[in-house]
Design a protein around this nucleic acid. Structure first.
Lengths: 69, 69
DNA sequence: AGCAATTATTCCCGAACGGGAATAATAAGT
DNA sequence: ACTTATTATTCCCGTTCGGGAATAATTGCT
């Protein structure tokens, strides 16, 4: 899926987390972030810090890729 | 290219920007971010805010994609 | 080498991040 | 419906982001 906004990432995270039967608390601990952060992220907060986002994605087995035209 | 850290994104941005003959000032104005932000981003600052990163990538024509195993 | 252009770093500072915890709201299960 | 689990929202608060501008450092060009 192509990412155009923070909201897109939030959706992805939420879906993947549920599919893997993680609670926010579990995934947060796993990723070394707070539960507040994870909730914010899943709800599309546009100012989440990039490395934390990357860590969460990694812990869900989601690959992040860039393609240059 | 697969993104594993903020530094990866920084490299991508810097390379793409140079390839398109943009200065940091130009790209920053285009993306509605400060030049400081762009410099930080290219140097792999891990706390850059996600939506600003996305905007910069978009203005370079770089597509950001996630792939769920 | 020397000059101009670009980039990196520092400063000030308002605004907001994110952690933790408590509370409210929502979803889920019996 | 009721209870429990999960998630969202609010609060306090230390820390830091990011803009803008100035300065240092680096790069590029002739």
């Amino acid at each position: 899926m192509i990412i155009k906004s923070a909201q897109d990432i939030g959706k992805i995270v939420k879906e993947a987390r549920k599919k893997q039967n993680f609670t926010q608390v579990q995934l947060a601990q796993l990723s070394n972030v707070g539960t507040r952060f994870l909730s914010d992220l899943e709800n599309g907060k546009p100012t989440c810090e990039i490395d934390k986002v990357i860590k969460v994605l990694a812990n869900l087995g989601i690959k992040l890729e860039v393609t240059n035209g």
